[in-house]
C-alpha cells in the first residue's frame, strides 16, 4: 500500500501549478525515501526534477516501490478542488490502476475523494551528472520572475551573464533591447532578499524566455531561487519546497549558429 499525507494541500497545489505548463504527463516514482518525478517537456528542451522526501510528509507509507503514470492536467484539476488548508492524502494499492486523492477540511466536516486513472508510460530516464558549476546565484524568486516577464517583451531569448560584479540579464529584439543588472547584495536585512553570487569563472549563456517563464511558476514555493550555470551546459533553476524537498528545472542553452 502507498499512502502519503500532507497537513496542508497548499504545497501540492503549488507544485502542480509549477509543472503543469511543461508536462502533460509524468511518472511518480514512490519509494520508502519519498516521491520523485523526472520528466522532459514535449520538445525535450527542458527537464523537471521533483523530489519530495518521505520525512517531509505528515504520514508516509510505501510498502513497495511504485511507478505511477499520471496525467498532469487531470491532477492539476483535482488539486484545484482542494482548499489550501485541507489535509491531502494520496492513496494507492499495490499494482494500482488508480490513485485516490482525499481532501479533508480543517474542521473535518468535509471529506472529498477523487479517483484518477493511472496511465502506462514508457519514459526515458536521464542520468544527470554531478556538476561543479562556474556560477551559482541565489536571488529573490519574485525578482527573477519579474525580470523574465519584463525582458520577454523584447525578445524570445534572455542572455544571462554572470561575473563577480553581478548578474546581467539581456534581451534583444526587433523593437529594441533591454538589460537588467543585479549586484551582489552588500548587506541584506532579510536573507530572502539577498542576491548572492558564487563565481569560479564568468559565464554567459542564452535561454528561451518561454521556458524561463514556465519555471517561474514555481515562485510561490520559495522566496529564493538558485541559478547554477556553466559554459555550454544546461541551466539549473532550483526552488526549495519547504522542508520537504525541491524542484529543479534544467534548460538546454541556445547554441550559436
Amino acid at each position: 500500500m502507498f499512502e502519503a499525507r500532507l497537513a496542508q494541500s497548499a504545497i501540492l497545489k503549488k507544485v502542480l501549478e509549477a509543472v503543469k505548463d511543461l508536462l502533460t504527463e509524468a511518472t511518480f516514482e514512490c519509494s520508502d525515501s519519498g516521491i520523485q518525478v523526472q520528466a522532459m517537456d514535449n520538445a525535450h528542451v527542458s527537464l523537471v526534477s521533483l523530489n519530495l522526501r518521505s520525512d517531509g510528509f505528515d504520514k508516509y507509507r510505501c510498502d513497495r516501490n511504485l511507478s505511477m503514470g499520471m496525467n498532469i492536467g487531470t491532477m492539476t484539476k483535482i488539486l484545484r478542488c482542494a482548499s489550501s488548508e485541507d489535509t491531502v492524502t494520496l492513496r494507492a494499492w499495490d499494482n494500482p490502476d488508480n490513485i485516490i486523492f482525499i481532501f479533508e477540511s480543517q474542521n473535518k466536516e468535509k471529506l472529498s475523494e477523487y479517483e484518477m486513472k493511472l496511465i502506462n508510460m514508457d519514459q526515458e530516464h536521464l542520468g544527470i551528472p554531478e556538476t561543479v558549476y562556474s556560477c551559482v546565484v541565489k536571488m529573490p524568486s519574485q525578482e527573477f520572475a519579474r525580470i523574465c516577464k519584463d525582458l520577454s517583451q523584447f525578445g524570445e531569448a534572455i542572455t544571462i551573464a554572470c561575473s563577480k560584479e553581478g548578474i546581467k540579464f539581456t534581451a534583444a529584439g526587433d523593437y529594441g533591447n533591454a538589460n537588467i543588472k543585479l549586484a551582489q547584495t552588500a548587506e541584506a536585512d532579510k536573507e530572502e532578499e539577498a542576491v548572492i553570487i558564487d563565481m569560479q569563472e564568468p559565464v554567459k549563456l542564452t535561454f528561451a524566455c518561454r521556458y524561463l517563464n514556465s519555471f517561474v511558476k514555481a515562485t510561490p514555493l520559495c522566496a529564493q531561487v538558485k541559478l547554477s550555470m556553466s559554459g555550454d551546459v544546461p541551466l539549473v533553476c532550483e526552488y526549495q519546497i519547504g522542508d520537504i524537498g525541491h524542484i529543479r528545472y534544467y534548460l538546454a542553452p541556445k547554441i550559436d549558429d
Partner: peptide, 14 residues
C-alpha cells in the same frame, strides 16, 4: 539568437 539545444543531448539516457 542561436539554435535551441535539446536537454537529452546533454544528459545520457539510462
Amino acid at each position: 539568437t542561436g539554435t535551441q539545444g535539446r536537454i537529452d543531448s546533454f544528459f545520457k539516457i539510462i
